[in-house]
Design a protein around this nucleic acid. Structure first.
Lengths: 226, 226
DNA sequence: ACGAATTTAAAACAAGTGTTTTACTTGTCA
DNA sequence: TGACAAGTAAAACACTTGTTTTAAATTCGT
């Protein structure tokens, strides 16, 4: 029988379908779902206006496809295991986590779209956020919490682990999310590779000290009474 | 001459103008500038569709007015000097800064709009962001940097001050900005008053340790070689 | 090469948008 | 009271949006 083989990795299956995904990724990341127009996307893709409705049911279907595709791209370039040495110290693993996270977020290629799309999801969550958290963010979160747990020691309660883990990621995503304010407050700060590495160093040192402090917490220490 | 007096504080000047500002604040905060429709705003305000164009030049003018008004409300409820004891320790001032910031961001009344509007500005900056940074965010940033500077000691370089200050605010705004992900990762975490105070305690302790560590930085310590 | 299925193209559709126009009401001072 | 300004109301305008329709073109197995 002459049934067509499944294309090896659905690569270059349909030309216009791929062009559409590419163009839509750009436009959605640039102006967001609502401000993005099907016409603009199709024009960039060199396709007809009806192409979106033919290949992806509707605009929402296209957006969902873009989101999962952008995630695939981002994971391909920055795998979740982020090239750690197999028997690294928790300190090294924390540093690798922060650094790779920063690199992922501040990448400049097509794989940077996922970060920008996710930033928009934060302010206007779509139906595609749930699976995104389950399949992508949850594993990263678990990985970080295991690192933090190792740093805190055995007697750390889950809440402390969670708080410390959030303190780490917050510093990472902050520079991406608040960039409009940062660039206005400090026009001199750049996000070139060496700056990003310096940033990773700072975040790691800062967080290691914070975690160590949280590990030995008993009384609220130097905090003023409520 | 019978020239009308300037209303004392432009309070309740025009009824519909105020209603429009109120309704627009809600709608803009809920769905963003682009998705907000003039008709929805006018309907909530009990006004005619043409009211927006009459009282504020156009939709953009209304948005700008909403943003400055929301800032005024937020500052009225949470003044920038945040009720600090006049001669408090840097540690106390840091704690007050973090706590009041969290309270401001997680407030539930009409004054919570500013935080949500600013979150949207982060992902899609408008022309109104520049004055907002100059008049509101810059002073807060300077205040925090002075606190951090006191904690770091005299020999701290500006970059370290800046990095540490950003590490502090990042932890604060993170819980607001990434709430969609947080609520999916940890459905149990709440943001009631006592949780917010606990959060402020954690951020303060974590950051104090981090700052102290940054103060004594010389060699990259335990960081792995590049 | 033929014919059926798939894909593309142009045009039109239907709904929703911000804005403007025009007329009407209201309140104020001479 | 009566003209005059300020505010409101209803309707229509001009435009953009996502989507559908209809027809043409292309692809591909036989």
């Amino acid at each position: 029988m002459s049934i067509k083989f499944q294309p090896p990795d659905d690569a270059a299956q349909d030309a216009t379908r791929q062009h559409l995904l590419e163009a839509a990724g750009e436009v959605f990341a640039e102006v967001g779902f609502h401000s993005a127009t099907v016409r603009e996307i199709c024009q960039r893709a060199g396709a007809n206006v009806a192409a979106v409705n033919y290949h992806f049911r509707d605009k929402d279907g296209l957006y969902a496809a873009v989101l999962t595709e952008s995630l695939r791209l981002s994971l391909k370039k920055y795998p979740a295991d982020m090239g750690l040495p197999p028997k690294a110290t928790p300190e090294q693993r924390l540093h690798a986590f922060a650094r790779s996270f920063l690199w992922r977020i501040f990448s400049t290629g097509a794989e940077s779209r996922h970060g920008r799309l996710m930033a928009r999801e934060m302010v206007e969550p779509s139906a595609a956020l749930d699976p995104m958290v389950k399949e992508h963010i949850r594993p990263l979160s678990d990985l970080l919490m295991s690192i933090v747990s190792d740093l805190l020691g055995d007697k750390a309660d889950p809440q402390t682990i969670r708080l410390c883990a959030m303190s780490v990621v917050s510093q990472v995503v902050f520079y991406h999310h608040c960039r409009p304010v940062l660039s206005r407050l400090f026009p001199s700060v750049k996000f070139d590779p060496v700056s990003i590495d310096h940033l990773a160093d700072h975040i790691t040192r800062f967080s290691l000290a914070g975690i160590k402090s949280a590990a030995g917490k008993r009384a609220p220490a130097c905090l003023p009474g409520k």
